[in-house]
């Protein structure tokens, strides 16, 4: 899903670079609410994590494989603005160190995998979270649907960009069908992994799931009946 150089013409690449720069600038402002000095390293670790799970390929169909994009997952875990920053850094490293995704296409990739995927994924998540019951199942369902929809939407936006500034004269119909079809399957994988990761994290460290903070209640310290006397004895 990483767009290489030369796929889109220079005008479209410049346009998406401007969109990406504006989005990242917004995210830098927005992340001030999510990131304090204490959490900046956590954002770094989230970026490492996204980078690592992008290496885990899962089989899709016809011998092709997909990997997690991780946008929706990161957004639910650390908040959407920080997630945009994490994905931006991941894409930068992939382009600069591994030449995965073109240098001039960096803006396009940030726009697709960062802004669009996170915008759709987190938007759907927030919308569903508001209507579904405030339980663990409700949280995981909203995140799963958000993650599922984020992948084909990003693919669709890519086809749109290709229609605008693609270098090849291809009938857009079949391309759209193929791209969206494959990415619906990848989206299923994305949803399953997102739900599994969130479920595991929510079970062990619910405080790390930013999108699930509303489910955390301060537990009251309840005195256990029958222990009051013992404590009094110990205190003596």
């Amino acid at each position: 899903m990483h767009v290489p150089d030369g796929f889109l013409d220079a005008t479209t690449s410049t346009g998406t670079a401007a969109v990406a720069a504006a989005g990242v600038a917004l995210a830098l402002r927005g992340s001030r609410h999510e990131l304090d000095e204490r959490t900046a390293p956590m954002a770094g670790l989230t970026a490492v994590f996204v980078f690592a799970v992008q290496m885990m390929n899962f089989p899709v169909a016809f011998g092709t494989s997909g990997h997690l994009m991780g946008g929706a997952l990161a957004a639910v875990l650390v908040g959407p603005w920080t997630a945009v920053l994490c994905l931006t850094v991941v894409l930068m490293v992939q382009a600069l160190v591994f030449a995965d995704g073109g240098l001039t296409a960096l803006g396009t990739n940030v726009t697709l995998l960062g802004l669009v995927a996170i915008g759709v994924g987190y938007g759907v998540f927030r919308g569903l979270r508001a209507v579904l019951p405030a339980t663990r199942t409700g949280l995981l369902t909203s995140a799963g649907v958000g993650a599922f929809l984020s992948v084909p939407t990003a693919a669709l936006v890519f086809v749109g960009l290709f229609g605008l500034g693609g270098v090849a004269d291809v009938a857009l119909g079949p391309v759209t069908a193929a791209m969206v079809g494959v990415h619906l399957l990848i989206g299923l994988g994305e949803a399953v992994i997102t739900v599994a990761v969130l479920g595991a994290v929510f079970t062990v460290r619910p405080d790390l799931v930013r999108g699930g903070r509303h489910l955390l209640r301060a537990r009251e310290l309840a005195p256990r009946p029958g222990l009051a006397g013992a404590t009094a004895v110990d205190a003596r």
Partner: peptide, 29 residues
């Protein structure tokens, strides 16, 4: 990991990877 059932294994693996990374980050920080 050759079929979709693999996701049942890979998902929780990714989950525990996240927790391990994050807790290491907390300690280092």
């Amino acid at each position: 990991g050759r079929h979709l059932g693999a996701l049942k294994v890979l998902g929780p693996a990714a989950g525990s990877l996240f927790i391990r990374s994050y807790e290491r980050g907390e300690r280092v920080h």
